[in-house]
Every structure is written in C-alpha cells, then in structure tokens.
Design a protein around this nucleic acid. Structure first.
Length: 431
RNA sequence: GGAACGGUGGCAGAGCGGACAAAUGCAUCCGCCUUGAAAGCGGAAGGCUCACAAGGCCCGGGGGUUCGAAUCCCUCCCGUUCCGCCA
C-alpha cells in the first residue's frame, strides 16, 4: 500500500509517480482514494467528539450514583443514550468509508523508483548486463527444443503428469527429477553464507497473500482451497514476507536475509495456450527464493546484492544470459524497482525469464505491518522488503537441456551440479 | 474431531461492570549512593491515529448487552492438557 499520509500531503507527487506506469485509470482511482480519505477523516472527527462526550457523561453517572444523586444520574444517562444513536450511525458510515478506502488502496500499485526506466511495455526494458557467456554460434544439435531432448532421454513424462493432474502439469523422472532437486540444492548452498534457510508452509491464509499483493486484485491467478480458506502459494515470497507480519523489529536485526525452497502454484489464468509444451509454463514448479527485510537506507544496495547473487548462480551453470531492468509500464503491481535475468535457450530460440529480483519499498511492509524501531528513538518505521528468485527450476532445466546437448544426443550436466547428482556427468539415452 | 482450561504491556501475572492504559514482580532507561559495579533508594518508559495538542482507539479477532465492558453474553481464531485419528 502507498502511504495515505503521502497521498494526503503531496498528492501531486503520488500522481506524477503513478502516471509513469502509463495507466490513466490509476489516476482516477487515486482521486477516489483522496476523496474517501477526506470523508473518513471528517467522519472520524465527528464520531470522536461524540464518543468523548459519552465517556465524560459515563464518568459523571458513576460519580452521581456513588453520591446517591439518582435524579442527576438518570438525566445524564438520558443524554448519553440519545448521543448513542448518533454515534452508532457515524460509526457505521466510518466503517463503510474506511472499507472503501482500504479496498481502493489495496488495489493501487506501488510508486516506481525515480531511477526505474520509463517505458510502455516489455519492449522498452533496457539491457543492463550482457549478453554474457554467449557462444559465437550454436550447433544444429542444440537447436532442438528441450521437450524433444528430454523425451528422447526419458526424463520428462508430461503425458502421465496430465493424466494425474490435467493440462500444464509436468513430471520429471530419473535424472530429470534429480536435476530439478540438484538445482534447488545448488541455489540454497550458494546463498547459505548470508541467508537463513526456511521451509515455509505451502498453504497460507488470505491475509498472507494480501500482504504481498497477490490479493485482492489477482485472486484469479492463485489456487484457492475454499473449504479451509487457504491459498496455495504462488511463490515463497508470500510466506517469507509475512513471517514478521505484525511485528516490530529492532533496527539492529536488519537487514534480515531469508531463503526458501518451495513448490509454487499458479493458475496461469491469463496465459492458457501459451508455452504449453515442455517446462516453460506449468501450474506447479520448484523455486528457491531469496528475501530481505531492510531499512529504506540499505534497500538499494540489497537489491543489487540479490541481483548479483541470482546472476552468480546462472553464471556458475555456464548458461548464456542477460539482465534487463523492468520499465515503469511493465512493472508488477507491488514493485518499486525490478530486474529480470533471462537465459538463452537455443532450441526454443528464446530468452527465458529465469529470475526476477525486486524491491518493494514499504508497499508490502505496510500491508503486512512489519515495522522496526531505531535505537533511542520513539515510534516505529515500516520496513522495506526485497526478494528475488535465486533460481526457478523449470526454465533453467530447459535451458540446460538445450545449451548442453551434445552431437550424440546426450546432455552434459554443469559441473557445479554434479555433487548433487551422485556424480553424474552426462545424461544419455541409455541412462 | 471431542472434552477441559486458558489468551491482559518486552516477559511473568493481578484485575472479573464505574476512579483501569490497567496492580505487582522481572527486564529496560535515568538519577542518587559507590573508585567502578552489584545491592539499596528515587524516578521514567506501551502502541496506533495525529503537524502539535486535544480527543479517539487498542486487554486474541468480530458482534451484542449497558449511561458505562479487560470484566457479562454470543461467535470465530489461537494455545495448553487429555482423548480420538494419523505420516
């Protein structure tokens, strides 16, 4: 959520920042929020005046009763009772206006960082790093899509996955399954120097998904378990962010670095029919997420740290990659500033988004109510959140297939993964 | 899932219709004392809203009764113990 106070005190600044997202309807929503806020404050003032009088009268009633002055008490009670009706109706108006304001605020996206590049769509995302590790040319035998390669190797069995769960579910087997697990272990081990490993729940409450911004606006994209009022996490970002929800941390605890392996569940409601083959888009996939809670002062450095860590993983695998920055028109709702790492897959002839690293300023922190206290200072501040996919398994898996395929059809396993694959160096059709 | 008992400040824990933002202890901070510390003595400290003050709100969440609710009633959530089920 945007800070309502900022909206109140400097509406033009907020308008200018949101305008950069290039969606005129946002400015209309903004005006709605501003007028609702005025309403709420007006009602609050009137309601509180009445409450103050009722509290005062109640005290007087108590005194009168103790002194045995029952006539006076009756009189005061009558006055208080009549105020009660006004209070009640004002309290109801307050609830209504407050609810409307909250709903509008929850749906408003975050303000882009001043340094985030302007742009209308993903075509305007500037290249920041790379392409790196790009070979001069690709061979014919690398120009095979991974689903064909994997099929030939017998390590991907999507037909049976569909039998079990329906379209857009995948299933790896044998060395393919081992490769998925190896990628996760690799990502976790490479960040264990600074990040505490968490194994979070995969099912979370509505409040948890609201804190990160998936709800209420993007409910269609998430799997809901209605009977128990739970949601399947679309990313470990959700549970990691809400771990400290409602808590007040000490500034010395920050930055707080966490990482988690989890399965991720996405309905992919808006992308039916896209990337249906292979591993590029699935309802369930594995990912290792890295996450940080920080003060606003250190957040920009942390963003680069997280990006560097994600880059190091991809570089370590020897895959061709590049890093782009997300422009204002392509930014996610909660994002303040954001980078994507893309890997080139010669078989698909495509740059695949394998990691997204973002800074959320205090947008999620406010929704989750995560605060910190500075030593020797009164009051609390909202924490900043940052996160990034350290490694999203399926697309990296696919890129490994296509980049490291040999003339004989076998696929070389990147050296860094071999310790996690019982020493296996090569996946060949015989395995 | 069933039963019983609980949920109060950083922690422990009293209060169980009116003077309660809430005793007391521990912890914290500031004085005094001391060479320094401990002990002792005295004092200060909750959060949110808010330019500030005033006012309002906060005793697990929500609703109700009442002139007035931490306190009574309903409901939900969570915890502990016992039973049931179970990897």
């Amino acid at each position: 959520m945007i800070d309502v106070r900022l909206l109140r005190n400097d509406p033009n600044l907020v308008k200018a920042a949101l305008a950069r997202r290039g969606k005129p309807e946002l400015l209309v929503q903004l005006d709605t929020a501003i007028s609702l806020d005025e309403q709420v404050r007006d009602i609050t003032a009137r309601r509180d005046t009445i409450r103050a009088r009722v509290n005062e009268l109640s005290k007087l009633v108590g005194t009168a009763r103790r002194n045995g002055d029952n006539d006076e008490a009756e009189k005061l009670q009558a006055e208080s009772r009549s105020l009660g009706d006004d209070e009640k109706s004002l309290a109801e108006s307050f609830e209504t206006a407050q609810g409307q304001l909250r709903d509008v605020m929850l749906r408003l996206p975050n303000l882009p960082h001043p340094d985030a590049p302007d742009g209308a769509s993903d075509h305007d995302n500037p290249l920041v790093i790379g392409p790196n590790q790009m070979p001069a040319s690709f061979t014919e035998y690398q120009r095979i899509p991974h689903w064909e390669i994997a099929d030939e190797l017998g390590i991907l069995d999507n037909e049976r996955a569909v039998k079990l769960s329906g379209a857009m579910f995948t299933m790896q087997r044998g060395a393919g399954a081992m490769l998925s697990r190896a990628l996760c272990q690799y990502a976790l081990d490479m960040n264990a120097d600074a990040f505490e490993e968490i194994r979070p729940p995969s099912l979370v409450t509505t409040a948890t998904l609201t804190a990160t911004g998936q709800l209420p606006k993007f409910a269609e994209d998430a799997y809901a378990i209605e009977r128990d009022d739970l949601w399947c996490i679309p990313t470990a970002e959700a549970p990691l962010t809400s771990m400290y929800a409602g808590e007040v941390l000490d500034e010395t605890q920050l930055p707080l670095r966490l990482m988690a392996y989890s399965s991720c569940y996405r309905r992919e409601a808006g992308s039916a029919g896209r990337d249906t083959r292979g591993m590029l888009r699935a309802h369930e996939f594995d990912k290792v997420e890295i996450f940080a809670l920080s003060t606003p002062e250190t957040a920009d450095e942390l963003l680069i740290e997280l990006r560097d860590r994600a880059e190091r993983l991809i570089a370590g695998l020897g895959l061709p990659y590049r890093i782009i920055e997300i422009c204002t028109g392509d930014m996610g709702q909660s994002h303040h500033r954001s980078f994507d790492i893309e890997v080139y897959a010669p078989g698909c002839d495509n740059w695949l988004e394998v990691s997204s690293v973002s800074w959320f300023s205090d947008y999620q922190g406010r929704r989750a109510d995560i605060r910190y206290r500075k030593a020797g200072e009164k009051g609390t501040h909202i924490a900043n959140t940052l996160n990034g996919s350290a490694l999203a398994v399926p697309r990296v898996w696919a890129a490994i297939m296509e980049n490291f395929r040999q003339a004989d059809g076998s696929v070389v396993i990147p050296e860094v993964l071999r310790p996690y694959m019982r020493g296996l160096e090569l996946i060949s059709p015989k395995n």
